[in-house]
Design a protein around this nucleic acid. Structure first.
Lengths: 201, 201, 201, 201
DNA sequence: TATGAATGAGTCTTCATTCAT
DNA sequence: CATGAATGAAGACTCATTCAT
């Protein structure tokens, strides 16, 4: 049993989990290494043994949150079924993802704020958005080719769709009392699909 | 001429302008008061004469950016013309606003990150979003009542629309090379309006 | 009418009175020039017109409080009457003085703390104590010479007497609920005088 | 040996000793944390590791100086022997204490100045004086009951006695060239005891 | 004389990081 | 591997004093 490896993995997870909590609570800059240490139940030395710096923790967290490879989502581009259904599926997965990351939203916006300026965080997020966009663009294009959707700027439409849910997530965060996912899941995609659909078709 | 008032107003503007630059460049926490002082071309003492603390500057900036009362946008709800046209106008104004705030985007996301946690920043942003939402909901509802749009959850639709442009702004920020406002202005609203019209279809 | 002089004198008194209040409230170091300015109802510029610095104000206050020349007290040394009566009179005046300075006690101890270290404050206080001591020593010596008191170290006795009331003032300040001047005025001097009379006994 | 505890105790002593020196030299407000750091031979971080703030150091010093419980002095109230002898003993111990604290006198008056205003310093000193007073009052009362002293206000007498030595300490501090403890130890207490004594038996 | 905005050196305190044990 | 005391550069803020008006 690779117990050495296991301990290392365990410790790293412990630290990242703790950092997540603390960063969500205070933001990157206001978070103190001591907070993370306390939250993780480790010692300062132990923390620095596994991560060389605060920045290293932030980068590790960035990966853990945004480096998922969207493979599942990507498969949708090549799956069978109508483009509409595949977009519905896609949106369902995105929402699922959002729900999963719920308590991380503060950290996500912390990253967004950082990504505002050049650097590795920005690069990661740019890539993340590009991949999503490519997938959705491809599905919409297939819908147009198949005569399911009106001809249109598929890329602009893709950006619109992703943006809509991205924006709803932000909105939700500022009015969770008024907006809830159960209610906000269907209408947007249905309006959007209706807008894309070839009517006379 | 009230030169005393003028000097005060001038200094405050000088400081807020400088703070905007510096905050955009470095983020709230990484920004140094000395940076602001240098950018403003004032002395430390002068800065503190007008704003008691870094936080006071941030709050003043929050007001300057988000406390605009959306009166113009609000008027659209009561204007004449089709709901579609009024929504188009609304979107046009929002985009105009985004363009105007372009260089402030980093600061805006800085605020969003802050708004993630309870406090005055959050309160301000929550109010800001609520007002937008009310206006758009009203217009859509009028469109439905007038038979222009298919019946639907007007509020959900409003959130969707605002979110879409909100999200596009974010998207744009991460791929200004791929997305530009000239191209992204029309398609989203047109798809959306078509969707509202055809929903039942 | 020397109105110019009058204004100057008036302003200086205004400032010193204000400084007294503020120093009593906050101590020399914690007192802010702005506090004094506010208390005096003057402007910063005006204050600095009359006193060149904070230290100048402190020195002026030192004079105002301790530079009284004790002439009255000094006269007692040459007055007629028994030594006991003259000491009683002396003590009465000292107490009167203490009562008058009541609200200045904090400032007085501020000066005492300062006088702890070499400098003009120390010099002033040293002189102040010396003069008191000389006067009392002389009266006691006269009492011994006149056979009214038993022979003793007149200087040590004088220091004891002055110290006693000095100490009572301090004590009073820390237990004004328990000690009051009406009760503490007579007993000490009477015990002391009895002691001087009976020493040999 | 608990070397961990030892190091902590050692460091705290180091810091308090250094603070004592610096505060004596400059006063609380004029003392710089860097002075204390330098005097203690520590780093700034180390100092703040053990004491959270300048104020915390001052409070710790307050305790170290005034929180001694006077147990020894208290025992005198219940010891055997004449009241006079026990008061002589008491005074001897007080003088001993003063000699011990000699170099701390500036700090003591720094505290007195602070105690002038409400707060923990004042509370501590008030308690300190109260305990002294209770002990001496009790002894004098016993002397009166035993017929050794004339009937009198025992409490006022106690305050007088303590005040006298308190005052002498102050006096001494301003004229150490003229007053020395060897000469000032006996006369005051003897005059005082003579004053209290029942002459006619 | 009087005003009060402006100056900037100086202070306390914080906290990421290191390293002897 | 782990500990936690120690480091010290850096930063927000203060405030006595000045000076243009």
């Amino acid at each position: 049993m690779g117990s050495k490896r296991d301990v290392e993995a365990e410790r790293r997870k412990q630290i990242l989990d703790a950092a997540e909590q603390v960063f969500a609570r205070r933001g990157f800059d206001q978070a103190r290494m001591d907070d993370i240490v306390a939250e993780a139940g480790l010692s300062k030395g132990a923390l620095y043994w596994y991560y060389k710096s605060k920045d290293a923790i932030i980068r590790a967290l960035l990966d853990r949150i945004f480096a998922g490879d969207l493979r599942q989502a990507g498969e949708l581009a090549e799956a069978s079924g109508s483009a509409s259904d595949r977009l519905r599926l896609f949106v369902g997965r995105v929402i699922e993802e959002y729900r999963r990351l719920e308590r991380l939203v503060p950290v996500v916006y912390e990253f967004v704020a950082l990504a505002t300026r050049p650097g590795p965080v920005r690069d990661t997020l740019v890539g993340y958005f590009r991949r999503y966009r490519e997938i959705v663009t491809q599905i919409i294009r297939q819908g147009i080719d198949a005569g399911e959707f009106e001809p249109c700027d598929a890329d602009a439409a893709a950006v619109s769709l992703i943006s809509m849910y991205e924006g709803i997530a932000l909105f939700w965060f500022f009015s969770s009392d008024l907006v809830d996912w159960d209610r906000m899941a269907e209408p947007p995609i249905e309006i959007f699909l209706a807008g894309l659909r070839r009517m006379g078709g």
